Simulated scan of single mutants.
Amino acid sequence: MTRRERPVLVYDGDCGFCTASVRFVERHVPTSAQIVAFQFADLDALGTTAERAEYEVLWVDRSGRVSGGAQAIARLLMDAGGAWWPLGALLRVPPVRWIAHGVYRLVAANRHRMPGGTAACALPAAQRPGARRPEA
């Protein structure tokens, strides 16, 4: 694994709810992470795939370890420090960890119904309007 200067938060840039959530983070959560839409990220260099990035938000730490879903959010909050750190730490401890995972999956499965969500959020990335098609 390649050591990186900063952690990276990878999200679905085609999803309105995901983008709105990232904008909240950028305004209110003082993370050291680089925040990038998976559509513009070098996923191979980050040690992940488009399929995983489509499925869940990802946190790639400085050592290259990838965490997804609720655990990515927990690591983001812990990275922010201050009052955010205890909340992130709590999300990592069972049974809160298990509950957070369930809530994350529920939200992710219904993100097209969430505030800021769009119908495109319900489609796999390859089927979204403007998606790049593989060349024949």
Rank of each mutant, 00 (worst) to 15 (best):
S21M: 01
V22S: 02
V22C: 02
R23L: 10
R23C: 05
R23V: 11
F24T: 06
F24I: 07
F24C: 01
F24Q: 01
V25T: 06
V25E: 03
R27C: 02
H28N: 09
V29S: 00
V29R: 01
P30I: 08
P30K: 01
T31A: 05
A33Y: 03
A33S: 11
Q34S: 05
Q34V: 14
Q34I: 14
Q34Y: 04
V36A: 01
V36G: 02
A37N: 05
A41E: 10
A41F: 09
A41T: 13
D44S: 06
D44Y: 00
G47M: 10
G47W: 04
A50I: 07
E51H: 02
R52Y: 02
A53Y: 08
Y55E: 14
E56R: 01
V57P: 06
W59T: 11
W59S: 10
W59K: 05
V60S: 06
V60A: 05
D61R: 00
D61K: 00
R62P: 04
R62E: 15
R62T: 15
G64Y: 09
R65S: 13
V66W: 00
V66R: 00
V66H: 00
S67D: 12
G68H: 03
G68R: 01
A70Y: 02
Q71I: 12
A72N: 09
A74N: 07
A74F: 01
A74V: 11
L76F: 08
L77C: 07
L77W: 07
M78S: 10
A80Y: 08
A80G: 11
G81V: 09
G81C: 04
G82C: 05
G82A: 12
G82I: 06
W84A: 03
L87T: 14
L87Q: 07
G88K: 01
A89T: 12
A89N: 07
L90N: 06
V93C: 04
V93Q: 11
P94G: 02
P95H: 02
V96H: 06
R97N: 11
R97Q: 08
I99W: 14
I99D: 10
I99C: 14
A100G: 13
A100V: 13
H101M: 11
G102S: 06
V103Q: 06
Y104C: 01
R105P: 07
V107D: 04
V107T: 13
A108D: 11
A108W: 06
A108F: 09
A109E: 15
A109Q: 15
R111M: 07
H112D: 15
H112C: 05
H112T: 05
H112L: 09
R113Y: 11
M114C: 13
M114N: 08
P115W: 03
G116E: 14
G116Y: 12
G117S: 04
G117E: 04
T118G: 14
T118V: 14
A119T: 15
A120C: 09
C121S: 15
C121M: 14
A122L: 11
A122P: 08
A122M: 03
L123C: 10
P124V: 11
A125W: 14
A125D: 15
A126H: 13
Q127C: 13
R128T: 15
P129H: 10
P129K: 08
P129C: 10
P129F: 04
G130S: 14
A131L: 13
R132P: 02
P134D: 13
